[in-house]
Design a protein around this nucleic acid. Sequence first.
DNA 1: CTAAACCTTGACGCGCGCGTCAAGGCAAGG
DNA 2: CCTTGCCTTGACGCGCGCGTCAAGGTTTAG
Lengths: 128, 128
Amino acid sequence: MRIGELAKRAGTTTRALRFYESQGLLEAQRTSNGYREYDDHDLRLVREIQSLQAVGLSLEDTRPFVACLRAGHESGDSCPDSREVYRRKLAEVDACLDRLTAVREFLLARLAFQDPCLVADPKEFQCS
Amino acid sequence: MRIGELAKRAGTTTRALRFYESQGLLEAQRTSNGYREYDDHDLRLVREIQSLQAVGLSLEDTRPFVACLRAGHESGDSCPDSREVYRRKLAEVDACLDRLTAVREFLLARLAFQDPCLVADPKEFQCS
DNA sequence: CTAAACCTTGACGCGCGCGTCAAGGCAAGG
DNA sequence: CCTTGCCTTGACGCGCGCGTCAAGGTTTAG
């Protein structure tokens, strides 16, 4: 299949596919007229990239998964490098959760602080 | 005080302060030679901006807080517009927490089982 | 007098994953 | 023949909050 059909079947754009190729994530055969030619295996690679991006991994982070599939493994995350990416991302997510939880509590506190303005001295807290 | 001293006292850079001015967040008097001149009130404004940025608010979101302080209020978050920003940000944070929690569970599942199952439909997992 | 250390405006760079022209080649239908 | 709809490479745009020169002017210390 050519790039347009691959894009359609993967639910993405030709621009994205060409970008993946420029980043060395996706390769393509070329027909005599210079058109890119893909097969179902390439579709599988693109879907792998998409699902990983959906989880918040960067394109760079998807590299080991793609390499793992290219190496013939059934799933992209069965290789050590891929699993290391998972672990690193998990640590990032945990840190992010902590930070956001703190931010959330800060916001709740600030919102609650002046809500009792109806009870407090109206000269100190202005609610308009 | 001039811009260098304000930057030092606020723990930021002159570039940031000039950028705030270009965004209409910070104003400055000018001396005869064209230098910006600030006072303690401006320092207060800058600190307000910084603390809000630390919570994850964009510069645009700090605008109501600065305006609130300029209007003479004791705290930047005592005005309705500021509180609305707080509420909107809280909703964002809550949504982000939900997404990150889902991502975390996905990562844990993938790491736990050597033989992984297929990914669910790719949804948006974009979190700051 | 010179050098250092301030200040000014203006403009480009960066990360990241593409979107969006631009300018053209190739293949097939009418 | 022309149009339509694919395809090619190349290059700039975007968001956001500044960093980082560039090319000067001003003030102060020695």
